[in-house]
Amino acid sequence: MAILIIAEHDNAVLKAATLNTITAASQMGDECHLLVAGSSCSAVAEQGSKVAGVTKVLLADNTVYEYQLAENISKLVTELAPNYTHIVSAATTTGKNFMPRVAALLDVAQISDIIKVESENKFKRPIYAGNAIATVESLDNIKVITVRGTAFSAATTLDSNASIENLNIVHDAQMSQFISEEVAVSERPELTAAKVIISGGRGMGNGENFALLENVADKLGAAVGASRAAVDAGFVPNDMQVGQTGKIVAPDLYIAVGISGAIQHLAGMKDSKIIVAINKDEDAPIFQVADYGLVADLFEVLPELTDKL
């Protein structure tokens, strides 16, 4: 029996989240099949066939799957499911959308947003907004699982190719239709979606000095955030606030500049993969959670950082 992974893509490119999902799936069993369901998406299947851990690619290429409508995709996956022990997808808005439908149609539970594979039927997942980690055991024959990408490394790409099998299964529920989409275009990514965030605290001194952070952000394609102290001091607007009462973020890289690291702030960013702290106070609590700390005057080092990136 094998594991079925549902690829996330835009009909042209395999999304990075799928690579992390494949890593997680590989820890559940050896044989991993990647389902690429879309429209004119053979390029995605090609890309998927080169990912380490993928033993076979299933390609369901039909206009009914073009927009990943949950009603259609879930029926396709459910039809394939009896041949698999695990059905796995990324816990992205796409995966979260159709996977519970698959579970319900199979009359099994879904285990959402796993961050660790303990065994083939035991998984860890965050609950209560990450304030607790639950270990959950599945009692179902088919396990439907979504994976939190940031908790697993990305599978690598190989030179060799897995075989690609074309499926001729068409499900058109005809209940929903795509109308339009609007891709967020902003100079900088949104805080909650950014891979890199640079945040300033009260140490920034005033709102104008946030320009120093923006310069770094431009180089890194980062979003700019702030601590509550900086917001309360009136440096920047409320919607930039990261923390318990602001936005909860978990980017790959979080750079905290002039932020002391009050627990309320830490609660909003502690799940970041790498935390960098720049602060002139070497006793600032932020250093207790930072992977890399630099004790320095931010007004000296920020321009230097901008130049050297």
Binding site: Q244, A262, I263, Q264, A267, P285
Partner: peptide
């Protein structure tokens, strides 16, 4: 403990 983690 410090004040803010207490208030938390």
């Amino acid at each position: 403990f410090d004040k803010l983690s207490s208030v938390f």
